Every structure is written in C-alpha cells, then in structure tokens.
Computed example of a mutant assay.
Amino acid sequence: MIFRLDERLIFPDPALAEPDGLLAVGGDLSAGRLLLAYDEGIFPWYSDDSPILWFSPHERFVLFPTELNISSSMRRVLNSNRFKVTVDTCFADVIEACSAVPRKGQDGTWITADMKAAYINLHQLGHAHSIEIWQGNDLVGGMYGVAVGGVFCGESMFSKVSNASKVALISLIQSGKYKLLDCQAHSDHLESMGARMISHIEYIEILRANRY
C-alpha cells in the first residue's frame, strides 16, 4: 500500500513499503519533513514529471568504514597528491554538477530544481554536507549527502576526471566522523570498495544507536 502524505509531519511505518521500497507520495521538501524522513530511514527520489515519492528500501546498500577496501592502484592515486580535498566550501556547485553529469542508463536527472533548493537549505542549516575534489582551481569531482548523527546518507556524486569521486568517498569515510555510509543504490564499483546490503531493521538500529 502506498500512503499519501498531507501537511502533517508524519510518515507511515517504513516496514509497510512496497517491494521496491516505495512508501509514500506527496508532502513537501521542507527541512522539517526531510530531517524526519532521514531520521526514520526514508528518502525522497522522484523526477520532474511525478509527485514527490518517498522510499524506504527493505535492504540498504551501505559501507562500514572498517570494511573499506582500497585497491593498490587507488592507493597510488591517493598518495600522488594529484587532488586537493575540501569540505563544505561550495555545496551548491557540487549538487549542480551532480545533476548535470550524464549517467549510463539514465535519461535526465532526479535532482530537480526543487531538490537542489531543499538540500541547499539543509546545508545552510548544517545538516547536508559536500566533499569537493580539485585539480588546481578546477572542481573535478565530489559528493553530497545528509548527516544523521553518525550516519552519512550519500545522495549523489560526480567525477569529471578518473577517480575523483572515489577520492571524495574515501576522504569522507576516512574522516572518522561517521560510523556508516548509506549508499542507497547498489553499484558495482561501490561493492568493490566494500559496500554491502544490510536489512532495514539493522539499518534502523544503527541509525538509532548513532543519534546525537
């Protein structure tokens, strides 16, 4: 059953989500609703031609810092000083780049204008963060997401040169700030770096144990 949200800041039990994770439709992208959603293991994912859709998958694709696998070739990249890493210096540029980079198998982007505005607002409130990767003065890669206590919910990443987004992800994980990176969607390259599926129940337990 798919639930329709109204103006009240409440969500149905995520355990009631459809097999594909779809839980609810409607509502808005206010900071209060977004923060409540992430705190309950829910996130928005939709396109311009649809209403706001809220998902809570029955399994989550996550990466624990202790399970991070860095290949020998990637270690050489990290040791080469080819890239400079910064945090929260140009959040709007990162989310714009994430929305503009073409992706295999995707027609357009789910990062709509409303989504950009909503996450920039979360950033200004101190809840959403970006990691930026530079070559000289050029922004060549990065990622952004939402911090929920000790869990970082990764929303999107981009790379204009080889390995730039991987450097962003590794820098985030090695920062020591987070107990878990929620990758949301499966990808082969994240799996090769140690990401794996856990149950929704385990994910919620981690969220609750790392609130602060």
Score class of each variant (00 low, 15 high):
Val85Ala: 05
Asp49Met: 06
Tyr212Asn: 14
Gly21Ile: 00
Val161Ala: 06
Ala128Lys: 00
Pro65Ala: 05
Ser187Ala: 13
Ser73Lys: 12
Trp54Arg: 05
His127Trp: 04
Met197Asp: 12
Cys183Lys: 02
Phe152His: 02
Ala97Pro: 01
Ser156Trp: 02
Glu18Met: 07
Leu78Lys: 08
Cys153Ala: 09
Lys160Asp: 12
Ser175Glu: 07
Ala31Ser: 15
Lys116Phe: 04
Arg4Pro: 09
Ala209His: 14
Ala147Gly: 12
Arg4Gln: 13
Gly150Asn: 09
Val148Trp: 00
Asn79Gly: 14
Ser159Met: 05
Glu40Met: 13
Ala118Val: 06
Glu132Pro: 07
Val146Pro: 00
Ala15Trp: 11
Gly26His: 08
Phe11Thr: 01
Glu59Val: 12
Ile120Trp: 03
Gly27Asp: 03
Glu191Arg: 10
His200Ser: 14
Gln184Asp: 08
His186Ser: 09
Leu122Arg: 00
Glu202Lys: 11
Cys90Ile: 00
Asn121Pro: 04
Ser50Glu: 15
Arg76Asn: 14
Trp110Met: 08
Phe83Ile: 05
Ser187Met: 09
Arg33Val: 04
Pro44Tyr: 03
Leu180Val: 09
Tyr38Met: 05
Glu155Cys: 04
Pro14Gly: 04
Gly126Asn: 08
Gly105Met: 06
Ile198Gly: 06
Lys84Met: 13
Ser175Met: 08
Leu190His: 07
Asp88Ser: 02
His58Tyr: 10
Gly136Tyr: 10
Glu59Cys: 09
Gly194Lys: 10
Phe11Val: 03
Ile10Val: 14
